[in-house]
Amino acid sequence: MPELAQTETTARKPKLDLKMYGPAIALVILCIIGFSLNSAFLSEGNITNLLTRSAFIGIIAVGATFVITSGGIDLSVGSMAAAIAGIMIILMNALVDILGTGVLTVVVGAGCAVLLGALAGLANGLLTTKGKIEAFIVTLGTMGIFRSLVTYFADGGTLSLNFDIRGTYRPVYYDSLLGVPYPVWVFAVVAVAGWLLMNRTTFGRYCTAIGSNEHVAQYSAINVNKIKTWTYVIQGLCVALATVIYVPRLGSASSSTGVLWELEAIAAVIIGGTVLKGGYGRIGGTIFGALILTTIGNILNFTDVVSNYLNGTMQGLIIIIAVWLQRADWGKPKD
């Protein structure tokens, strides 16, 4: 019976291609629109600015890709960023008396921020896995907690970094290496590391398996709770890294820091082709997703055709269109 397997061909190909290249094509189209509206869009200064601004959301979104791919969700990232920023500023200001205003203070402060991020992620992870509470609920809870913490620490106002440390810390956001700003370097490193982790390691494979079907994962000798917890820790680390490069930009933190970042991060992940219910994750797509979101805002700054205040509307439309394009069965034969 050599011809037995007739039904077993795949109708995935045409759909897959759009999933693969859709985000990249969208970004190119956006760039063409931007350039045609104002040629300064493609100037070196603007491109650098665009990439730097994409870095925060991009780094956080890389972490979110792991969480979402393994079937979870983290709504707390924006608040977490604000809390980490606030605590880091308080810590650095306090360290001035002991360590002075030099590099050491900044390094210790940043190190603590990274540790805090990991711990916050661990808390989210353990509550969802060991605590058996839905990720949506857990992170909705921690979102409120983190947000109120920063408000409390700032006494309802703004936490400002010591002026001298600001001078030491400033280059992390504003300086460049080989013509590329530091935040962009960090973004690139996180992106490459994330891509490798997702596509070339057992960890990435396990995330996909868990998001695809937790039972199958469990029966396939995968420690589901451990892997899921790790995804939240990675998310926490990414938030901390993004915060560390974000703080020197303004040198302050308040209750409005990082507002709606969680939605932008999730949007970047979804625009990039990762499936919200898990089981299919694309780091490359996420990077493009983050760039697309920043580019929209940037183009609106360049033109008077659409009001800048409609930035959210444009981003919302792009998200909906992106998912609609991914869902549609283009070129799939109709049964």
Binding site: R205, T208, H215, G279
Partner: peptide, 29 residues
């Protein structure tokens, strides 16, 4: 379908899932 195979994945991913550590060196597949 419920506990054995990842239906949305291909044969490759499914085949090696249980014994995946054997297919990795220092976590790299």
């Amino acid at each position: 379908k419920g506990k054995g195979l990842l239906l949305e994945e291909g044969m490759q991913t499914n085949l090696t899932l249980l014994a995946l550590p054997q297919f990795a060196r220092h976590l790299i597949l």
